[in-house]
Amino acid sequence: MATLNAYLLVGAVLFVCGVICMATKRNGIGVLMGVELVLNGANVNFVAFSKFTSLGLDGQVFSLFIIVLAAAEAAVALAIALNFYNNHLTIDVDRGNKLKG
């Protein structure tokens, strides 16, 4: 049951859900959660390849780097979201259309 393709399927579902989440959510923090899901889909694939193929430890090290960079990304994006809220008094990303002219 726990085969490589099963892990890849989980990764694919997480990835696609993340992409949809990024595309449809109008809440800025919801968009961030979509990014986290996409990165986790990639992580699942890396760890699965690390277990089932000759990739060895590289997959696990890569997924560690992804986790670290995702945390950094979340911190910066949250700071931007707070700034956005301070300027627009809402977190709705559709309201960020000041450059439209």
Partner: peptide
Amino acid sequence: LADADFVGAAQLLIYVGGTLVLLVFGVMLT
């Protein structure tokens, strides 16, 4: 389950315990 203990623990500590708490904190602030 995929024999990646350290990555799993890092996922719990950084993602669930850190990043998501930060996100919910952001939700409360905004």
